[in-house]
Amino acid sequence: MAKTLGKESTCSIARSLEAVGDTWTLLIIREAMLTGATRFQEFREALGVAPNILSKRLEKIVEDGLMERRTYREPGSRPRDEYVLTESGRALTLVIGALADWGRVYRPRQDGTSPCFAGEKTGGIARLGFVTADGDFAQPAELVAQRTPDAQLTTP
């Protein structure tokens, strides 16, 4: 039986957290996005995570479809696996961006760093925010949340 978070297993937030609710998972995804890391040792060096924990997290990330495992072989070496973000994993850019913005504002550090997202073709800096159907930006404090069936919502 699959693990479900909380009483409301139909909740999209609970379903999402089942895949990305672990700290190491989001940090692995962050490294893949921001540095292009794909190899076990790259993740290990960047994060300082124990090898057994990293192995388990990468296995779950692949199982959840956020990354795919590909075999590569450098000349004179044995075959090894690399981990490449899937479309589902790349779509977490919004989550990583939102967490980064929140952390920058509400958990500031004098020596802190944050990712900056820009258009690949134009180089224009992208801003994260809620946009209404009219194209206006809405401040989070101006919004109310309500449970809505997934079928009634449009997917980007």
Rank of each mutant, 00 (worst) to 15 (best):
G65W: 01
T71P: 02
T25G: 00
T113Q: 10
N52R: 15
M33H: 15
T25Q: 02
R44F: 01
A32F: 05
A50F: 13
L66G: 12
Y83C: 06
E120P: 09
T4R: 13
A46P: 05
L58F: 10
R39D: 11
I125V: 14
E142L: 12
A50G: 13
K3I: 06
P108M: 04
T25R: 07
E45N: 15
S16M: 12
L85R: 04
G124Q: 14
E42S: 12
D64C: 09
E82P: 05
L143D: 09
W24Q: 06
L99R: 11
P51N: 15
L153E: 10
G65H: 03
G97D: 03
V62G: 02
V84P: 05
Q139E: 15
V84N: 03
G124V: 15
D81Y: 08
D150A: 11
V144D: 14
R70E: 10
I61W: 00
L92V: 03
L143C: 06
G48P: 08
S9I: 02
Y106E: 12
L85T: 01
A100L: 01
I13K: 02
G119R: 07
L47V: 05
T155D: 11
L99N: 14
R80E: 09
T132C: 08
W102V: 08
L92T: 03
L99C: 06
P156R: 11
L34S: 09
L128D: 03
L94H: 13
K7E: 12
P115M: 02
D111I: 01
N52G: 09
A91S: 14
M1E: 08
T71G: 05
Q41M: 13
V62D: 08
F40D: 07
R104F: 04
L128S: 06
P79T: 01
I29F: 00
I125H: 06
E87I: 02
G36P: 03
L99M: 09
R30W: 05
F43M: 04
E31D: 04
W24N: 13
D111N: 14
T113W: 14
D81L: 01
W102C: 06
G21I: 01
A37Y: 02
E63K: 14
C11V: 10
G97C: 03
E82N: 05
K60D: 11
L5E: 04
S77E: 15
I61S: 09
L128F: 08
S88T: 11
R15Y: 00
M1L: 09
P156M: 09
G119Q: 01
S55Y: 07
Y83E: 07
K56F: 11
P79Y: 04
G124I: 14
C116H: 13
Q41W: 05
R44Q: 15
E68R: 15
P156L: 10
E31A: 08
K7N: 11
L66S: 07
L99G: 02
G21T: 00
R90Y: 14
E142R: 09
F130G: 03
